[in-house]
Amino acid sequence: MARFPSEAWFKEVQEVYNSDSSLHTGGGGACETTAAFKVGDECYRIVFEGHQCLEIRSASEAELASPETDFIIEMAPELWKAMVENIQEHGAAHDDQTLNSIDLRQDDSIAYSPEDDQARQDLFYRFNQNFQDFFDASSRVETTFD
């Protein structure tokens, strides 16, 4: 059983996502981006290529701020936890726990470009469903929380 958040947890999600093409339909096509997730102090770097999640691993803050990162999704740990719990319960993000709906509720967007590059920040919207599909894949990962 993998703990959220951890590199092991994200790698299990990656395995589920990559092995089931039915999880690749929501995004409507290929996705090419290098993004990052910030869960409290923990940072993860994710690389999408085509219909695959090519890489997901722990990263340093400095790495996240590098020009390679298109955008970062940052939320308070309790928001991440509520989203993952909701996905575990429903098999996919439900009601107000999708990335879109969480973002709508926040004063500041949960996604931003470390380079203040609007075109790269917009990738959060252009590839929104790919990221949603990725997190929805976590419904098949046995999960514990801190």
């Binding site: 995004g27 409507g28 879109n100 609007q118 917009d122 919207y125 252009r126 929104n128 469903q129």
Partner: peptide, 23 residues
């Protein structure tokens, strides 16, 4: 859900072009 999620992605491309052009 399908229609609006895909319209968001399409429309976001248009906005990316538009904002980038204005800048």
């Amino acid at each position: 859900r399908f229609i609006f999620s895909h319209c968001i992605e399409d429309h976001a491309r248009h906005l990316t072009y538009g904002y980038d052009h204005l800048k």
